[in-house]
Nucleic acid binder design. Structure first.
Length: 472
RNA sequence: GUGGCUAUAGUUCAACGGCUAGAACAUCGGUUUGUGGUACCGAUGAUGAGGGUUCGAUUCCCUCUAGCCACCCCA
């Protein structure tokens, strides 16, 4: 039996044994870990972006945009050569001019670069900026983990006081609660380079005590020599056991760091923002000092544990006081945080929070015949400019199709103009909910529309109260 | 990057190694050449890619690709 087959013979046997990706399938596929945002998802993006911008503006943050492509060195120097992001996740390449460049893996370095490069230390301090855009990390994709994702990011430069840290956390908290996402704020202080050094010594000493290292998992054995702070991060059961008695960094903070941290917590208490003091929270970027925090979602409806998904963090940030200086600016303190918008949208979808849609009082214009089409096209512009919520489908000529479309967009009224109406100087007004229609004088269109839109609203209110009354 | 699971129309799912790969929803068309949302009829449309075993593969095996899950890490 000859099987149905596309008779396009692939390039003959001249192919190298290693098949190249491009020849493989006839259809082009998007790159791994990259996503298209389609119509149905756009409304979530609108919602989230609007919320982010509104909040940022209220708290005095101004928008900036930095290039997606930067010199690779920017990230190597700031984020840290040894961090996972830089050492194994960067989209780094040499461009045609021979420059070593990288697709932005992280927001803060670009903001810092811009702050220095444009002499923003000459602006009134603190400088508060926000930022929204794509980031690229070459990781193995999973749900909620993409190679291109979008972050909403806030940065404050030139303010060393704890108010700055608090304000960032406050904004993050407001962002989530106003989107009806339940979150938990994890917070910790990892001190400054000085007191952290002391702590790491203590921590190493602790783990060196008899028999402790043999209990650790393989990853942690490596961490012990490479980055002892990360020992605190491990979720392995046996490592957790050892960790129980480990010294906590908060007990070793210098006076300055301790005072700063206490203030942040006091402010949070004052604002009644719930937080979870997590002495084991350590963040993976080199530049963080003092306050670090992370935001994770909470499942409220006590699902059975098997149903519970791994809780990925929705956002995180911290203070980076030494970073501007490290990057060649004058000593400037700073702090910032980022929120992963794809993950936020995932959460909103999970909870199926209803979205407000702009489909109130839609007037749909339908036409029959060339003459009426022309007239309706101009009427459409007229109504639109007058502030009516109008829709049309002038590419379709049959009334059936136009009404179908009117129904799809949830129109309240349809104005129908055909040969008959055109000759009589009238227009037909069809009420899509009641299914009634009426021919009116074209000149009385505006008062008629206004009347119907108002009457409609009152009727709806009435019916709502009636149905409540019935239930009682 | 490591390990596991999966891959069938646009979407959600069917199909003891064997007949024309079947539905629902969606889309388009018709019943109605001037009337939508409920009905009826019809059409379009799929085995991720490449190889192997077999008389015969959607089904079994291998490779690649992609997705999901856990780890690593992070937003």
């Amino acid at each position: 039996m000859p099987r149905k087959k596309a008779n396009t013979t692939k390039k003959a046997a001249t192919n190298k044994p290693k098949t190249s990706k491009s020849v493989k399938s006839k259809r082009l596929h998007r790159l791994r870990g990259m996503k298209d945002v389609l119509f149905s998802e756009s409304k979530y993006w609108d919602l989230v972006e609007r919320k982010a911008k509104d909040l940022a503006n209220v708290y005095g943050f101004q928008k900036i945009a930095t290039p997606i492509l930067e010199f690779s060195d920017l990230y190597v120097k700031s984020t840290g050569k040894e961090t996972d992001i830089v050492s194994k996740e960067m989209y780094a390449f040499v461009d045609k001019g021979g420059d070593k460049v990288t697709l932005r893996p992280e927001a803060t370095p670009g903001a810092v670069r811009a702050y220095i490069e444009h002499g923003m230390f000459n602006l009134p301090q603190p400088v508060k900026m926000f930022w929204m855009g794509p980031l690229f990390r070459h990781e193995k994709p999973q749900s909620g983990r993409l190679r291109q994702h979008t972050q909403f990011d806030l940065e404050i430069f030139g303010e060393e006081g704890p108010v700055a840290d608090t304000q960032l956390i406050l904004i993050a908290y407001n962002f989530f609660s106003e989107l009806q996402i339940n979150v938990q704020i994890q917070i910790n202080s990892i001190g400054c380079p000085e007191c952290r050094k002391d702590y790491i010594e203590k921590l190493s000493a602790f783990y060196k005590e008899r028999g402790k290292r043999s209990k650790l998992c393989n990853d942690c054995k490596k961490r012990f020599t490479k980055n002892p702070l990360r020992l605190l991060d491990c979720k392995e059961e046996s490592c957790l056991e050892v960790r129980e008695d480990a010294p906590q960094i908060v007990d070793f903070l210098c006076d300055d760091c301790r005072e700063h941290f206490i203030k942040v917590l006091e402010y949070l208490d004052e604002l009644e923002i719930p937080y979870n003091l997590n002495p084991f929270l350590v963040r993976g970027l080199d530049y963080y000092v003092k306050t670090v925090f992370e935001i994770t979602p909470i499942d409220e409806e006590g699902l059975d544990p098997s149903q519970q998904k791994r809780q990925i963090s929705l956002g995180g940030g911290g203070r980076y006081d030494g970073l501007v200086e490290l990057m060649g600016g004058r000593p400037t303190s700073g702090c910032g945080f980022g929120i992963g918008l794809e993950r936020v949208i995932m959460k909103i979808k999970e909870k199926s929070i209803p979205l407000k849609e702009d489909n109130e009082n839609i007037i749909f214009l339908a036409q029959l015949g060339e003459q009426s089409k022309r007239k309706m096209m101009t009427l459409f512009e007229e109504l639109r400019k007058a502030g009516y919520n109008v829709r049309q489908s002038f590419t379709k000529d049959s009334l059936k199709n136009q009404l179908e479309e009117a129904n799809r967009v949830n129109a309240k009224l349809v104005l129908i103009l055909g040969q008959k109406e055109l000759l009589d100087g009238t227009v037909m007004v069809r009420d899509m909910e009641l299914g009634t229609q009426e021919v009116i004088d074209f000149k009385k269109l505006y008062p008629e529309l206004n009347k119907r839109l108002e009457v409609k609203e009152m009727k709806l209110e009435n019916s709502a109260t009636e149905s409540i009354a019935e239930e009682k």
